[in-house]
Design a protein around this nucleic acid. Structure first.
Lengths: 207, 207
DNA sequence: TGTACATCAGTGAACGCGCGTTCACTGATGTAC
DNA sequence: TGTACATCAGTGAACGCGCGTTCACTGATGTAC
């Protein structure tokens, strides 16, 4: 353990971590600056040494989430290469994996009300992660028979929507929205059926 | 206008309406009991004549939402009869229509953290609305070639997830998640492709 | 129809609480000589 | 190596605020006779 002296040593990151933990537990609005400070063993006023205020702290948490998200998506994308289909499926799976593994980040990113355009840096990093999904969709799109090829943006919007829906409804402990299926399976089969509808998977082949 | 006397006349419903307006504008946690009371031209304490407290007021808003939701879903279902496919598609469209037309209710129902099991009445009415989706899925499921027939619950979970995802990401004004397509089209095409993947729509037919 | 009275929907003051934010401060740490 | 000093990360007290909730109350409304 780091020596606990008068100076914290890495308070900035400790506050972000505390915020993420709180956001994960109580939702984006259940989190308070004071509680995050307390959780880092520090006075609320100390937060202002490192952040402009409450919003700024959440934004940093979201930022870090987008960085991880972008890395995971890019890694998944390249892992599936050179097959456009494999790359796309791996990216889809990475989306859910991210939401499961980093629920605090996920909430900070997509449910905290933080605008993606808050700063240019935030916008950049967010665009990168979501861009991977769009790139994968675009590439896969080339393989779709032209007569049933939707615009790639629509394509990726569908997949994003289904992924997000599965996360929100079934991957979280929201009461009353339980499903007898694990979210991984739900997303996997859902995307599989969708891709079959696009003619990307033969009708008799399981993804 | 109702005469503004000492007694309000219909304060209970006025409070629910105010709550719905606030929830729609500021999200489920942005809403406060005090503000709802002020918005109904009444002291915060007056709320306690009609509700047990803040939670109870939100729960009533959600309850009323589920009632409308159930009615709309049932109506859509019967309108699509006797074709299982038409019924299903109409129900799907009704889902989005509800979210668009009653955003306050939608948020109160699915994002406020109110448990569906809060009261038996709430549970009943919620189960009814969502049950229609499941029934429609089950029925349509009969027409799916057995070798690619998923369990009906999985089927309806997919559709629910995509619908919810479209609502959350594209039907609301969440900044940064704009799509060049109207949510109606997104959902319509998304479900269409999905159904084609199940072999429910011939490959060359547009829904 | 008029009067006495019970009901009960609202008031208004008060409460304790935790919030985000500010401010002057202190004392540990790092640097210059 | 030792000392003087600047820096700056934290403290702790204070603020004003709006929140949800309680309470004794008041006075309009509805009812019984």
């Amino acid at each position: 353990m780091p020596k606990r002296g008068y100076h914290h040593g890495n308070l900035r990151q400790a506050l972000v971590d505390a915020a993420l933990r709180l956001i994960e537990e109580k939702g984006p609005t259940g989190f308070t600056l004071s509680e995050a400070a307390k959780s880092a063993d520090v006075t609320p006023a100390a937060v202002y040494r490192h952040f402009e205020g409450r919003e700024d702290l959440i934004a940093e948490a979201a930022y870090q989430g987008y960085v991880i998200f972008g890395d995971l998506m890019e890694h998944a994308y390249s892992k599936g290469q050179p097959s456009a289909l494999a790359a796309f499926e791996t990216v889809g799976r990475a989306y859910l994996a991210f939401a499961r593994k980093f629920p605090g980040h996920y909430v900070a990113m997509f449910e905290s009300g933080i605008s993606i355009q808050r700063t240019p840096e935030l916008n950049d990093v967010a665009t990168r992660g979501l861009g991977v999904l769009e790139t994968a969709a675009e590439e896969l799109s080339q393989h779709i028979p032209p007569e049933k090829r939707p615009p790639p943006q629509m394509f990726s919007a569908h997949v994003w929507a289904m992924s997000h829906g599965v996360v929100e409804l079934f991957a979280r402990g929201s009461p009353g929205t339980k499903s007898p299926f694990p979210p991984e399976d739900l997303l996997e089969t859902g995307i599989g059926i969708y891709l079959r509808g696009l003619g990307l998977i033969p009708a008799d082949e399981e993804s």
